[in-house]
Structure formats: C-alpha cells, structure tokens
Design a protein around this nucleic acid. Structure first.
Lengths: 334, 334
DNA sequence: GTGAAAGCGCTAACAT
DNA sequence: ATGTTAGCGCTTTCAC
C-alpha cells in the first residue's frame, strides 16, 4: 500500500502538500494540487484511516449493543440506526448481548467498544439500580429502551404510556369492554411492561371501565411462543374477553395463532392491537393493528445526542427524548 | 486518558516494560510486573486500540455487506456471522447495500470498508459478469450467497440444488404430483432461483413426473407480499396444484396466507415447503416445513476463509464451500 | 504557498 | 530482565 510519502516523492513535493491536497486546503497553487492528484491516481493511493484515527482520536465508528438481531424489533431498530449513522458518515459495529447483564457490562468495557467513538446501548440485563456502573465507562453512551429510564446519560425511547393508552382507547372505541393486557403483571409499573400497563389503566379509567386484574397476563420473554403459551393458559382458565392489547407484536402474533386454532375470530370475537409495528404486522393473517413507536425518530435523535456527547468538551446533563408514536389500525381491530 | 508513558512514569520503569507486562511477555521479574499492574490499576489505564491497530496493520474488524437487515434471512445470517466472529475475537461492522450495485461497489471501495481487515460480501446487485470489479478491492473478500458463484475470491453458500431437490422429493413422497415451484422462471438456471429450480426439476425427473412450466411461477423480489400477490395470480388463473415448494420462506408465508383466505387447507389441499428456515417458520399457522441452509456453518467457514485470506502472504486461489442443509418437516407438509 | 519536523500511542528490534 | 529508540501513516504547528 502506498503511503503519503510515496505520493510526495512521485509528485516531487512534501508530505504536507499531499496532505493539503487530500484535505482540500484552500491556499494551494492549482498546478501543485494537480501534480499531487496525478500522483495519487498513478499509485492508487488511499489514505490510511487508522493513522488518521490515531491522529484525530476519532474512529467514525459507533457501537450498537442490542440483545439479539433475530428479534425483529431489534433488527428493525438496527436498520434505523445504521441509516441514521450513515447519513452522518458513521459506521456501526453491532454487538449482541443476549440480554445478559454480564455480557452487557463486558461489551461496554471491552477494548472493542473503546474503539468506537460512542455507544448506543439498548439495556436489557442491567437494572436501573445498577445504572451507576455506566459512569465507569469512558466512552460516551446513549441509552435506548425502557430498561433504564433514569441513568447517568441521555435516554431515547418511545412514548410507552401514551402508546398503550391510545391502543386501549381504540379498542374501547370499538365498544369492547373486557380487554386483555397481554405481557404485564398487575401492580407492575416499570419497564416497557409497567409503562404500557399504566397507559392501559389510564384508558380504562378515562372510559370509566372497571380494571380486572384477571385480564392482566404476565409473560416472561416476549416471543411468539410465549404469547401462544399464555393464550392457551388464558383460554383454559375460561376468562372471558372481547379484545386484547398485546405489549409487543410477537406475543400478539403468537396469541392470535392460538385463538385461530380454537376457532376464535379476530377481530369479530376478539379485537387485537399489538405494539412495535414490526414489518410482519402488515403480513399476518389478519394483518395486525399496532403502535408504531417512531423508530426512525429514535435512531436519529439517539445519534444526534451521541454525536453531541462525543463532541462536547464538558460533561453533559442527561437528556430524555420520547419519540412520536402512531396507532396503525389494520384488520385485527377493524 | 492515561498512556503507556504515564504508567511507565508512575511505575518507575520504561514503556517497554509496561508493554511487556500488558502483552504477557514471559521473561519478567514478578515484582516489576506487579509494579506495572498496580500503576495500571491506579491510573485506570486502557491501551489505545487505534494505536495498536496502526502498529499491527490490523483492526480486528470485519465488514459484513448485506442487502437489508429487515429481511429475516439476512438478520439471521448477520446473527450467525457475529457469533462466529465473536468466537475469534473479531467485531463486525454491518453495512446495508439495499441490494443496489452502485452502493455495493461504493461500500466495497469505501474508506470505512478499508478500516476492516476483511469483507464478507453478500452480493445482490453486482452481476457475475461484473465480478472482476472485485479484484480492484484491496481488502480480502469472501463472497456469500448465490448471486456471484464464480468470482475472483472464496465463496461460501448453501447447497441450493440439493436442498430444493430434497424439498421436492419430500412432497413427492407424500403422493403429490402437481407441485408449484414458487419463485423461479422456467429456463432460468442461475442465482438461487435457477439453482433451486434445477433441484426441483431433478426431483421430478427422478420420480418420472412430468415437468409443467405452468407450475413454475416467477416472482421478482422474494417478500411476503410478492408471494401473496403471486398466489392470487395463480388462483385466478385456475391452475391446479396439490403442493408447493417456495424458494424462500417469506414468499411461502405470503402465499399460504392467501390460500387460507381462499379456503384452501394446508397441508390437506396443498402441502408446502419453504426455504431458509427462518425463525418464523416455527411460529406460522400452520408451522412451515423448510430447508435449513446451515447458516452457522456458512458463517463459521466464511470467517475461517476470510481470516486465512487476511493472514496469507501470498494470493490464494478461490475456494468454494457448500454447507450441509437439512429438511425440516413441520405442519405444512405433514 | 510549501517544507521540516513533531507527535498521536503503541510494538519491537536492538542494546545493555 | 529492562531501557532506548525507531517507526506504523497521518495531521499540524511553525518556519521560511
């Protein structure tokens, strides 16, 4: 690989001049610049990014820590993040934590994460009361998701309470009164589950509908199969319901599948709204109503916060951003 | 950030000694090493990876170029690649090409890709007859997928012909004789579509079943909705069939949905096998039989080939690896 | 407008 | 067993 010295020698100039040409330094004699350009072309010279990074102290790399790419929500989040990063000329290293606290901490402190200028950290294993551990990470961090709401750094996520309330209000507006809240535990108030349950209860309250704890169904791990399992338990228990707000799309799809097995018609017998608006919601049978959490906005703002943090000389106070959501009505609640 | 010099000063040794301690150089007096370790702890020293990378000429970074993470197949491929990379202590920068040739070429030649030690390139836009363009990329490349089979570098993918043949044989073994081939064009022989069609035809041949071009249904872009659209066209045309081998799971799922809308029972009326065995195949209604292409093997071998290429002093002849596949029989063909 | 030289933080050849 | 020093390839003060 030719270096800046090779170019300088061939062009008959100093390396400073080559550097000037590469970096579009304005005060150059056009002829000199042309000589350099020709030499670069002849040698096929490419500036060495690592050397630049060492000089500048920046790598142009961001690290995105998420639980698991196989989870559609995170794959779509990663997609949004990469597009937003690309628009800023940044690349993204993705690291999977598996949602395990130890691995999350290891990734945050790893040499590899240190290579990145900043970290987008979608916490899943670390608890809010352990968030102070983040202060020992020297790389700037922006938090994503609901797991840690009040950490020592910026936090960007969706309007969970409002989204769940809108979903529930929508079902109430269809005349439904016994609405299953799939994915939470009665009394829970933190995390996505707690926040969404809060929104659900607000909507009931507002409509003066009674709150029945039996309609709140706890699910550990929001996957299609846990949603399906939960629905089997519900149906076996004989609880009556005419609608369901599921706290993510995966459990909604799993539960819908079981309902269909049992001959329950969606939306006629049970109207359903999910949460996250993953791609698949548009293709399921029936198509799934959902809350679009505003992923692009989350990604864009998170990257803006992060780049500001990276550029800042002084410590910044933690900021919070809640993206705009949208209720998408599809066949499952029409 | 403290540097190796700060550590040396505090420990009262030279930077060489600090470097020795960090890199576990064996011939050291334990007391000296301990002094260094203490100084490192006191200062919270972390070796600067960029400086190391500049010295070593390696970054420990791999670039993975794929069309789109929102596509479950690529999300799962990325997952496998990241796990295999992690096992080798490597990190992965993911870049989305959108399947566009120009963007693929731009990414391959970009400064950012040059930061990586090697590139895993899942070609989608670049055609085989343009594969020579890859020779101008100085970073080692390993090709993934079916788009470019005989490029100037290593190639790792699945056994397309054999997998499709196994899927078709399976349907024939169920007594089905009019088997739709969803996703190919009669006469086509290249790309995933062509290869899988070849396997399909081999199975028919072997069973002495007639080949009916009307059963081969072309689909541009293998997504759920294109599969659904194709199935609507097929049903409108009145073509009779009792089974379907879909050339990926997404179009299988889309087509199954439309069949259900039309009251066609799967597998009773039409038995279905997909291709790729994405996660969702386990959760659809009915669950979808599929060909598991051996993603982990693909990822592991691709990374092995790539690291060997990176380490090699001399140019290596292109190698080819086809991973072991597996037919997974689920409800859709039982 | 361009050149000489220092230095980013590290590793490793060479010296002792 | 440890210290001195050059150099990875680049940007950037400081001269001229």
């Amino acid at each position: 690989m030719p270096t800046i010295h090779d170019v300088a020698r061939l062009a008959g100039v100093s390396i400073k001049t080559v550097s000037n040409a590469i970096n579009d330094y304005p005060y150059m004699r056009p002829a000199t610049k042309q000589k350099v350009i020709d030499a670069i072309a002849e040698l096929g010279y490419r500036p060495n990014l690592t050397a630049r990074n060492l000089r500048s102290g920046r790598s142009g790399l961001l690290s995105l820590i998420i639980p698991d790419l196989r989870n559609a929500y995170f794959a779509e989040l990663a997609d949004s993040v990469m597009r937003a990063a690309d628009a800023q000329g940044l690349s993204v290293i993705i690291e999977q934590s598996g949602g395990e606290k130890d691995r999350e901490l290891a990734l945050l402190h790893s040499d590899r994460a240190q290579l990145a200028d900043g970290i987008l950290y979608s916490a899943a294993g670390l608890r809010e009361d352990e968030a102070h551990l983040l202060t020992s990470v020297s790389t700037p961090i922006v938090l994503l998701g609901e797991h840690i709401l009040h950490g020592p750094t910026d936090h960007v996520t969706m309007q969970n309470v409002e989204g769940a309330r809108a979903a529930t209000e929508h079902l109430i507006s269809l005349g439904r009164t016994r609405i299953l809240a799939l994915g939470a535990r009665a009394g829970q108030t933190d995390g996505s589950a707690g926040l969404r349950l809060t929104g659900y209860m607000q909507a009931l309250d507002e409509a003066q509908l009674p709150f029945d704890p039996a309609l709140v169904v706890d699910i550990v791990g929001w996957y299609r199969f846990t949603g399906a399992d939960a629905m089997r338990r519900i149906l076996a228990s004989g609880i009556k319901f005419d609608a369901m707000v599921a706290f993510n799309d995966a459990i909604a799809l799993g539960a819908m599948r079981v309902m269909q097995e049992f001959g329950i018609r969606v939306p006629d017998d049970v109207a359903v709204v999910g949460y996250d608006d993953i791609d698949e919601a548009q293709y399921s049978l029936p198509t799934l109503s959902s809350i679009n959490p505003g992923r692009d906005e989350i990604a864009t703002v998170a990257i803006r916060y992060l780049t500001e943090r990276i550029a800042s000389e002084v410590p910044l106070a933690p900021r919070d951003h809640l993206s705009q959501f949208e209720l998408i009505v599809r066949e499952s609640s029409r």
